Simulated assay, not measured.
Amino acid sequence: MKKKGQRLQRYFGLRREAGMAWSGGIEHLLPGQISGWVVAKGVPLQEVRLLVGHHLIARAEINQARPDVCEKLGWQGTPGFSLVLPAELPPVDWQPAPRLLAISADASQQVELGLIGKPQQTAGLLKALLQSDLLGLEGHVDGLLQGALRGWAGRRGQGHPAHIWLQAAGQEPLRLNCNQWRDGLLAMGLPERSGFQLDPMALPPSWGGLEAWCSFDPQGQFRLPQLERVVLPAGPAVGGEVMQAIQTSASLTPGNLPPMQEWPTGVPDDLRHHWQALENFRLYLDKVEQKLEARDNSRQQAPAPKVSGLPGWWPHLLGGGR
């Protein structure tokens, strides 16, 4: 039984530091906030502090409910925390590595928290985040809703809409602008026009069927949180009828267009109207050209006008009137 308890402790990350057994860490490292959980046996940890050397960047109480953690560890309390990051920092000395500390009420006990699953990368990612222009951004991917990928991202007091990046394995990241209206953001202190939505069918076919996610940066280091996996729908298979329509539409050029009602049924409506508009414009230019040509011909054929006030014999001086 004792060995089983030790295995569970190792599984949930239970450590001993300065005589204190504790477990937890950073779950989400985002430009706008750092969230996670921490518990310590026999020591009530009260708050987390983000420090760069002696500079206090932000602080937050450890007071959020985490029933999942409490159930797994058999713990009673509120071990979660969410530390909001400022959009701007004062001048600091970056020589010391940034640290996130969980501290007891009397500050006599403290532990340094790292990213759960990759604690060795914590200091580097913290420094990169705090020094980037992403600082202060918040966001969330709501998922595929009503056929569109939806979510939001923004910064308090922002002057311009934020943008994020759509990611998938083997694909170049795609930039998404967050400038659409979304309900509920004003209550969070964010501009209401910080939402985004994307029709997956507008993506290149190579994205179909892939798991997608969003990040604040094109490199994909800082991911937007999301509750569920997002798998993009695969595009419809290109059958013989559609291929024939594509080939037919590719051969259509202004001047050899049949009437729209005679077009193959597989040609998309937007392509039909596009080519029909070009054909109508070509016919309009033809009429203009015909009018200009008729005007020029009429000018060439018109006789020279007589100039009043000259004697009738003046054409003989030029060899005319014979």
Score class of each variant (00 low, 15 high):
20 M>T: 15
241 E>H: 06
143 G>W: 08
92 V>H: 12
322 R>S: 15
175 R>D: 05
122 T>M: 06
197 Q>C: 03
142 D>Y: 06
23 S>T: 13
187 A>H: 12
273 H>Y: 12
271 L>A: 13
96 P>Q: 08
232 L>V: 06
261 Q>I: 12
239 G>W: 13
105 A>P: 09
126 L>C: 10
72 K>S: 15
123 A>Q: 15
89 L>M: 10
101 L>Y: 10
270 D>M: 08
166 L>G: 04
17 E>V: 07
241 E>T: 00
93 D>H: 13
237 A>N: 04
183 D>Q: 15
272 R>T: 05
54 H>W: 11
70 C>Q: 14
64 Q>P: 01
126 L>V: 11
102 A>Y: 04
281 F>L: 11
58 A>L: 03
247 Q>I: 10
92 V>C: 14
30 L>T: 15
27 E>H: 06
47 E>M: 05
175 R>G: 04
141 V>M: 04
43 V>R: 13
94 W>V: 04
312 G>W: 10
69 V>E: 07
132 S>A: 04
307 V>Q: 12
10 R>N: 09
193 R>F: 04
303 P>V: 01
192 E>N: 04
31 P>D: 07
162 A>D: 02
277 A>G: 15
303 P>H: 04
294 A>N: 05
80 G>K: 07
224 L>Y: 01
236 P>V: 06
72 K>R: 15
255 G>W: 14
15 R>K: 15
157 G>Y: 04
277 A>K: 13
21 A>M: 13
271 L>N: 14
267 V>A: 03
86 P>S: 05
194 S>N: 06
293 E>T: 09
224 L>D: 00
295 R>H: 09
148 A>Q: 14
192 E>P: 06
31 P>R: 07
170 G>I: 09
183 D>K: 13
56 L>K: 08
159 G>L: 09
107 A>F: 09
227 L>R: 14
94 W>K: 09
71 E>I: 00
184 G>Q: 11
275 W>G: 01
60 A>D: 13
205 P>R: 15
303 P>C: 01
108 S>C: 12
37 W>M: 02
268 P>V: 06
183 D>H: 14
180 Q>C: 01
51 L>K: 09
27 E>M: 10
115 L>Y: 10
85 L>M: 11
172 E>F: 12
228 E>N: 08
32 G>H: 11
216 F>V: 02
37 W>N: 03
243 M>E: 12
67 P>T: 15
248 T>S: 05
273 H>K: 12
145 L>S: 02
113 L>P: 06
158 Q>C: 02
218 P>I: 05
267 V>H: 10
222 F>K: 00
